[in-house]
């Protein structure tokens, strides 16, 4: 059995692109977990709601083949901003209305509330767009979708495809990641977040408004999830009320793989999970005929369990057992 380099590179490209999107969602888990030590099960659904909001916003415009390119760019940016703000506000509201009231409750209470919230949001998703998979409104023309940049721009004669969509994903993700690392690392609010993550009570004694800092972490996570949602919807060309659940599970696995609570870890984990995902979807099949995309969740779950058993702290984090 020969190693098919072309196929490998192709799925590596897809994996990295996909992984960037997972990283954006994984950051939402890690930001919140780092500060309040809560797995926000509703995060996947916050992501889904962002996609549905972008879906609705874009649906308000009529986009045809003769729509000028700058109008399309303007609509895309508007929808992106709208999705980010919507998801951010939603995540913030969830914290304000539910989690904040449960901050002193026993550990199980916010977790149960989180899974309940995730369900409520899925129900709202059904009311919103029904229970079928839908195609998002046609924002990117099909001829643009199928361009291979390596052939058209670089004149390479290769069957490996690099599509404009891949570049768009990278073009949106990288600035967001840079901005986030600037925000957490260089601003005063970011410093407050790091302090709160280290020791909530000491941070409060230093005059940091803990509730506000936690709210900002939720807001940030929501913003990133909203951006990822809009792009994912076009990358996969589907929208449904279910899209958040599996994506959320994969993103959480990425956060754990990288070391939950660690921002760089979330990005590294996201890229790795994206690559595993794409390899499992396509590459492995060339060698194991019965393997296919339907087994990808099993592969990702395998990664999750293996990490938890052998390296519970993740690749970049340190393992902290329950605090006394």
């Amino acid at each position: 059995m020969e190693f098919n380099a072309n196929l490998f590179v192709q799925f590596l490209i897809n994996g990295v692109t996909n992984g960037m999107l997972i990283a954006l969602v994984a950051l939402g888990y890690t930001l919140v977990y780092g500060i309040v030590e809560l797995i926000n099960f509703a995060h996947g659904e916050v992501f889904m709601m962002g996609a549905l909001f972008a879906f609705t916003i874009i649906g308000m415009f009529t986009i045809g083949p003769d729509t000028p390119w700058f109008a399309i760019v303007a609509i895309s940016l508007l929808a992106l901003a709208a999705a980010m703000l919507f998801s951010g506000a939603l995540n913030w509201a969830i914290d304000r209305v539910v989690y904040r009231r449960l901050r002193n409750a026993p550990r199980l209470a916010p977790l149960i509330a989180a899974i309940g919230l995730s369900f409520i949001l899925q129900g709202i998703g059904i009311y919103w767009i029904g229970s079928n998979n839908l195609r998002p409104p046609n924002l990117i023309a099909n001829n643009i979708r199928s361009i291979n940049l390596l052939n058209e721009w670089f004149g390479l004669d290769t069957r490996i495809r690099l599509r404009p969509l891949d570049l768009i994903v990278v073009g949106i993700t990288i600035p967001l990641l840079v901005w986030l690392s600037w925000f957490v690392g260089r601003t005063k609010t970011g410093k407050a977040m790091r302090a709160t993550a280290q020791d909530r009570e000491a941070a409060a004694l230093m005059g940091i408004d803990v509730n506000r800092t936690i709210a900002i972490a939720f807001l940030l996570g929501g913003l990133l999830a909203g951006a990822a949602a809009m792009v994912t919807m076009y990358y996969t060309n589907t929208a449904s009320f279910r899209m958040g659940f599996r994506y959320g599970l994969f993103a959480f696995t990425a956060a754990v793989l990288g070391g939950i609570g660690n921002l760089t870890g979330a990005v590294v984990g996201g890229l790795l999970i994206g690559i595993v995902w794409q390899m499992s979807d396509g590459f492995v099949q060339a060698y194991i005929p019965w393997w296919g995309a339907q087994w990808t969740p099993v592969a990702i779950f395998g990664v999750l369990v293996l990490v938890m058993v052998f390296k519970p702290g993740g690749l970049l984090g340190e393992f902290t057992p329950d605090k006394v």
């Binding site: 099960f41 550990r107 977790l111 959480f252 754990v256 779950f301 369990v305």
Partner: peptide, 21 residues
């Protein structure tokens, strides 16, 4: 056996994944 020695919320997500798998 592998997950119960971890924190409680990790168990929640592993069982969530198991229920999906």
């Amino acid at each position: 056996a592998p997950t119960l020695r971890l924190r409680g919320d990790y168990l929640a997500i592993v069982t969530l994944g198991f229920g999906e798998i």
